[in-house]
Amino acid sequence: MSGVSRRDMFRVLLGRGREEVPQAPPAAPVASSGGDELALILDRFCLAWQGSFCSVCSERCPEPGAIVVEQGKPRVDPGKCTGCRVCHDVCPAPRNAVFLVARKARGGMIGKTVDETRPEEPDHE
């Protein structure tokens, strides 16, 4: 095998492989804030996006179609996500890859909310 492809192997993970993963239980789930949040999957932390494999969030999401999986990689459809947090609670990634962000502006928030910035590319490279 050539040196080039050796170096290229798993290039998607360069940077990640050298990070340590804390071996600690996850934080306790936080109650849903009732629909004013939206899940976002951060490719940087998501196993499926990082060359490993995972499908847990899309399997456990109670909202049909809220997590769309293409070629094994999930993304959240903001139009269908209810912000129920299930995906966040079950995500087994070393650093939880699901973030819940506010749909409506909260007091004192700087910048726009996710809904206010729609439509745009999903949060992936």
Binding site: L13, G17, E20, S52
Partner: peptide, 19 residues
């Protein structure tokens, strides 16, 4: 044991691990 990382020099996994 407080942290785990894929071994970057390992030929098998080059730093990658599964869940």
């Amino acid at each position: 044991v407080v942290a785990i990382a894929g071994h970057p020099d390992a030929e098998v996994n080059k730093g990658l691990l599964c869940v």
